[in-house]
Design a protein around this nucleic acid. Structure first.
Lengths: 197, 197
RNA sequence: GGACACCGUUUAUC
DNA sequence: GATAAACGGTGTCC
């Protein structure tokens, strides 16, 4: 089983169902209703992983994950969101989506703080350089592209971590598995294989 | 364990080694090479603490700390420096010393700004009264006395805070402990007990 | 306008 | 216990 490449949206060990149970035999993808994301990092900084799950309106799901050898918790949280939005964009979907994260850093960063950072040329309110600027810009790009394509801004929703939320727990599982280089079976939508970056 | 008195150079809970390991059995103090200082203040203004470490040329150290119920960060930074120079003077040492602080306020205040303040009768360049004049005058006095005694001006050196500098980090620990009224063991040089004001 | 420091808060990751 | 990051504020000076 190949290890997923560094820090890229990548699916490992798809369950390869013999047939799509809920998607009938059509080639059309169901609609993405929700995206869950989470990041993990052993040591922080240290080896990290991220997990993302797309929930479709027919009840099916598509799971993604990735890793980085040396990273931080916050970067992995961002990567998870970037991968989710990239996959969403790849579906060509034109209806709005809600994205769930347990990171206030990611949620507030993309919805509140980023406008100030642009205004101040990527300086924090304390006049220090904004960290993870590369990923913030990437996230900003896909966030705007998703808004454009779906006709509505991504609805960013914070969910408290480790409180039993099924979507969040599953992403946590995926993220942690990738961060520890463990193999994990990702549920992959048969009509969504092309979403794996 | 008694709480140290308000705002005085005071040692708590000396390690009371059975013997001075590196100072042999002589009564002579080793030479102070460096003095580190730091201040802390919960709330700012609020309860504050300061920490000072004298580093001797034989590798031994002598630590000091103190607190104030209601003060500011800058006053505590100044107190730490005053205590360090008072202790230096008490040793009777006649060789030059370097003093490290992470406060540009203290460093520039004593090395650059104070001459202008005296010239302008303790008015800032904006014609407002210089604050903390009491401590500036005290610091000026010990700074000059130390220069006189050691034969060279104190070398005031700025060190960036929280960047892993061992001396600075230790002073930070002491200052914060005193500001929060926590007990902390100060390493005390056996031949330097009299340095505790 | 600039600089340094000192806090307070929040979430996550270990 | 510690790190990763952001926000808000004060203490002080030039």
């Amino acid at each position: 089983m190949p290890t997923p490449p560094e820090s890229s949206g990548q699916a490992t060990e798809a369950t390869t169902p013999t047939d799509a149970s809920s998607a009938s035999s059509s080639d059309a993808l169901p609609t993405v209703k929700a995206i869950y994301t989470d990041g993990a990092c052993s040591g922080n900084p240290g080896p990290g992983g991220w997990g993302t799950v797309l929930y479709f309106d027919d009840g099916s799901v598509h799971e993604l994950g990735g890793r980085a050898d040396q990273t931080t918790n916050n970067r992995m949280e961002m990567q998870a969101a970037i991968a989710g939005l990239q996959a969403l964009i790849a579906t060509g979907q034109t209806t709005p989506v809600e994205l769930f994260t347990d990171s206030e850093y990611v949620k507030k960063g993309i919805t509140q703080w980023i406008s100030g950072w642009k205004r101040r040329d990527w300086q924090t309110s304390a006049k220090k350089p904004v960290l993870n600027k590369d990923l913030w810009q990437e996230l900003d790009t896909v966030n705007q592209a998703a808004k454009q394509q779906t006709g509505a801004p991504i609805q960013w929703t914070y969910v408290r971590g480790h409180t039993g939320n099924v979507g969040n727990e599953r992403c946590d599982e995926i993220a942690r598995a990738f961060s520890q280089n463990q193999t994990i079976s990702l549920k992959q939508h048969p009509q969504a294989r092309h979403l794996n970056a």
